[in-house]
Design a protein around this nucleic acid. Structure first.
Lengths: 202, 202
DNA sequence: AATTTCATGTAACCAGTTACATGATTCA
DNA sequence: TGAATCATGTAACTGGTTACATGAAATT
């Protein structure tokens, strides 16, 4: 038995990952996916047909998803895609992959997407492990940014420092959120801690 | 005089904008830019030669920058690029462009980049106007996210809600930062308000 | 002598963008 | 009748990624 059974396969772009995660929840058509990307906070991803339909075909060619024509509907027949067993394995692998500081700095949205899917797909235990690793990496990124701020000459014009501080404070808030999320998942049977208000009202 | 003197020109991608902003500060070579992207928090941008050198040539073709060979150095001659007058106009236009909520949701890094350059290029007054508009858009995005959280069924599994709350809290922190930045720029002659510690230490 | 750094590039590839196309059905 | 919605696609383009190439100078 050779170690790697996956013969390369198509690259797992953020869009592909989002599609796999959504199809794990339930089978959906390309149009369903477009609606989700167009009308929910997942709208971060492109909802353009020129992105989604080719992506679906790539995933189908790799046998990670399988489409079937749904003729129940009276309209033009929809093609509904479902995750295959192999696709599920790929998804779990992608969600369990370890996190680097570079991911935190440059691809945080993807990490958040992974978290959102991890609960269903990996279960509470692995999701907690993921969050703890994420917290460690966010912490080291915060320390990195703080060092960058300190390294600025006192005389420098404030714009660069302010821009750095935006990132710093945003990641600090994320650190606080991570600790809360970890606490919440550790004791699952407590009522949901509603978020305190305050922040960016007018 | 026809209204638009700019005949299309190349698209102003985030990388192009970063390059224009950096060349506005001082003339630099492609290698200088690569070093900046590779070793500073601007590392968010790609430092690959396959991105930078073609971008430089596009900008040069559009006459937004101009390169000149620097033979002072004993090494292989460097080509140093400087912003042209037309390039400066393009840069100012890009920095002054108005902000939408979609920008806040999907392209915040670019907005931050614009802020970092705006101080030098647009001056304090226009930078303040930019920050105030940004604050308004961040506020409406926070309200949007809060509505999304509220719309979730109480029974839902907590992962989706938690993921939404990450964004919410991160943007709330950005709102606080924006108010502080605005205050700081409004009264320029106060000592720099150092950031209070706390947050994501170990 | 070998490695690292300086400095600039090219070539192949490709995911996503933009814009257009199609055709049925439901609604006003 | 006409518009909007459902639903799926294609075609052209291009910026960025990855990987490779080159060659001189400084460093070890």
């Amino acid at each position: 038995m050779k170690p790697r059974e996956t013969p390369a396969g198509p690259p797992l772009t953020p869009l592909s990952l989002a599609i796999l995660g959504l199809l794990e929840q339930e089978p959906r058509s390309g149009y369903d996916l477009r609606k989700i990307f167009a009308t929910t906070p997942m709208g971060y991803f492109s909802s353009s047909p020129g992105a989604i339909y080719p992506a679906l075909r790539r995933l189908e060619r790799a046998r990670w998803i399988r489409g079937s024509v749904d003729r129940a509907q009276p309209l033009r027949p929809r093609q509904v895609f479902a995750l295959t067993a192999g696709g599920g394995r790929i998804l779990r692998e992608a969600l369990a992959r370890s996190v680097t500081r570079a991911d935190v700095a440059a691809r945080f949205d993807e990490l958040l997407l992974r978290f959102a899917f991890a609960g269903r797909v990996l279960g509470r235990r692995h999701t907690l492990a993921f969050l703890r690793e994420l917290l460690a990496r966010v912490g080291s990124h915060v320390r990195y940014l703080r060092a960058q701020v300190r390294a600025l000459p006192e005389s420098a014009i404030p714009y660069g420092r302010l821009a750095l501080e935006q990132g710093l404070e945003s990641y600090q808030a994320t650190g606080r959120w991570l600790r809360r999320a970890i606490r919440e998942l550790e004791e699952p049977r407590t009522g949901p801690a509603r978020i305190r208000k305050g922040g960016s009202g007018p």
